[in-house]
Simulated assay, not measured.
Amino acid sequence: MAELPPIRLVGLSGLLIQFATSMSEPANRAAIAFRAAVEAEHWPEVRETSTSLVSTFISIDLVAHTPEAVVEKLQSLLATQDWLSAPLPAGRTLWEIPTLYGTDAAPQLEEAALAAGVTPETAIEELSTARVRVLTIGFAPGQPYTGELPPHWDIPRQQSLTKSVPAGALVVAIRQLIIFTNASPTGWRHVGQTAFRNFRPNDPTPIALSPGDELCFPSVTAAEYARITTADLSGNGGAQKQVLP
């Protein structure tokens, strides 16, 4: 049997199951699948669960519950299969989010294309047809890190910060795409602009995307983007979605 991934204490707040030490698609898939498996167990001591790029966090009051007993249950569940080969859980959502590439709205497309070794036209074709997964949510409320893009998109962050990109900005670096939830400085290159808002604090579900969801960013014209920004005030930004089997 393969060696089980390490389980680490996180103070008194819970336990972290680490499937790798660096980002990889199998480790991210394992973290998402294992989280779903833990939630399906309905263990009473588990308060909530979450995932990072390659880890699953289990929130447990370790004052009220001894770590040893919980670790034993987690190890038993980990031993049931090879989680690096586990399928993603059913019930995830595929989102198609209309995106305006380049123009003054997303002025670093050409710079990013140059770094990736492609033309701006090829960059738009590749980014607008890529299907990526929400790897994790972090940095800011509801901010999704998605990937992975092909290897030539393993472009570095900028050497200096862009002072601010707007909410809905689609930025790229290290084979990943991020949609910014709020205006923010960034070292990632601004290649597209969406009207999608993942963080909606007044909604019953304040974060629309979940780790494991999949996204596409089809290209639209400036006129189409302008129409979307006035016609769809829900935060979806004209996005279409469907439940994955």
Rank of each mutant, 00 (worst) to 15 (best):
212 G>L: 08
97 I>V: 13
175 R>D: 06
217 F>H: 06
128 S>A: 15
147 G>V: 06
65 H>G: 00
173 A>H: 02
44 P>E: 06
138 G>F: 10
199 F>L: 13
50 S>E: 14
122 T>M: 14
79 A>F: 10
231 A>R: 11
137 I>F: 05
4 L>D: 03
88 L>V: 09
86 A>S: 15
208 A>S: 15
211 P>V: 09
183 A>T: 03
162 T>S: 11
80 T>V: 12
165 V>L: 10
52 S>N: 00
67 P>K: 04
154 D>T: 03
146 T>Q: 13
157 R>P: 00
206 P>M: 12
194 T>W: 06
138 G>H: 09
106 A>N: 02
237 G>A: 08
139 F>M: 08
111 E>C: 06
245 P>I: 01
37 A>L: 01
119 T>Q: 13
43 W>I: 08
212 G>R: 09
98 P>F: 08
160 S>P: 00
93 T>K: 15
234 S>V: 03
107 P>A: 08
140 A>N: 01
233 L>H: 10
48 E>I: 10
216 C>T: 07
231 A>V: 02
177 L>H: 04
225 Y>I: 11
131 R>A: 07
90 A>E: 13
240 Q>Y: 01
136 T>H: 08
44 P>Q: 08
90 A>C: 07
85 S>W: 01
26 P>W: 15
5 P>C: 07
145 Y>I: 13
159 Q>E: 15
104 D>T: 10
209 L>H: 03
217 F>R: 07
1 M>E: 03
152 H>T: 01
234 S>N: 06
221 T>F: 13
138 G>Q: 06
80 T>I: 11
171 V>E: 04
234 S>M: 09
146 T>G: 05
47 R>V: 12
75 Q>S: 03
6 P>D: 04
14 G>I: 07
82 D>W: 10
90 A>T: 08
82 D>N: 15
87 P>H: 12
207 I>F: 14
91 G>M: 13
187 G>N: 12
234 S>I: 04
25 E>T: 12
241 K>M: 14
188 W>V: 04
21 T>W: 15
49 T>E: 08
66 T>F: 03
245 P>H: 03
49 T>K: 14
194 T>Q: 03
79 A>E: 09
102 G>Q: 04
